[in-house]
Amino acid sequence: MLTSSSSPDWCPSADLETLKNRARLQGIIREFFAERMVLEVETPILSQAGSTEPHLEHFKAVEPDSTHHYLMNTSAELAMKRLLAAGSGDIFQINKVFRAHERGTRHQPEFTMLEWYRLDFDLHALMDEVAQLLSTLGGACLHQERVTKTYVQVFEEIVQVDPLQTSVEELQSCFKQHTGNDAPVLEDRQAYLDLIMSSIIEPGFNPNRLTFVTHYPAEQASLARLSKTNSKLAERFEVFAGGLELANGFHELCDVSEQTQRMKTENIIRQQQNKPMLDLDERFLAALAHGLPDCSGVAIGFDRVCMWVLAKQHISEVMSFTAENC
């Protein structure tokens, strides 16, 4: 089989060995959840409503000669929560998701997401399960020692600022101090936190460890509930293998009025950024109103997991074809 960058354009991006490993890892995932009685589900790629998340942009699907317009999902989260509200119990899914304009060594606009939800799991129970799955996938040869730190801790340890208090000016000078370059002009404080997180903190994580970062600022709660003990923090975690972001998990927000309010706020942010405002997903909100059971859920970039397990530097090395040669 022909491969590698010097190959003709029709050839796969990944080598055959990698594609076999990819299949093997998906097999392990299905076995892992079968043992735990977690049901595999499939939800549509097309959706009539979209996600209002301000930093994600949808691909659009247009049905010819018809008035039907769909958005392609950026994640299966809202559909899976409708299943949970309908009484599905624990569920998982391996599906394709689509995010416009995301291209890089670790990004492709079309990629594979593993997502699962566990009833009555709190954040720590789910983090334990993520660690178990990753260690099952990683095998014995990899460093999987796990470090768990809060968002505030990683900022204090690596850049010596408190992310909940520090002003925009201090964050700008923190960026300059650590990179030697001027910070770009950004909308708000959260964007500067993202800048420092992605350019200084994540690359600074121990390359031989899995780092779990928990309790993100409430402004970055997304679909996570806020901490009962400190409303400035969200019950959200992320997992990094070295500096490679693998997973994002929430203790899920079940309160429909708070969820509605957050989506409206996200739409306002989208408007400020000259992005299209989206109709709220009324079916999802109706499911929340009906009742989402107490649960935690996590989404893992499956291609990234393949990169980590198989020690590949570029996401195209673990995909059969990419947006560049599909």
Partner: peptide
């Protein structure tokens, strides 16, 4: 291209 999953 760098992007935290949920961020800018």
């Amino acid at each position: 291209f760098v992007k935290p999953g949920k961020g800018q």
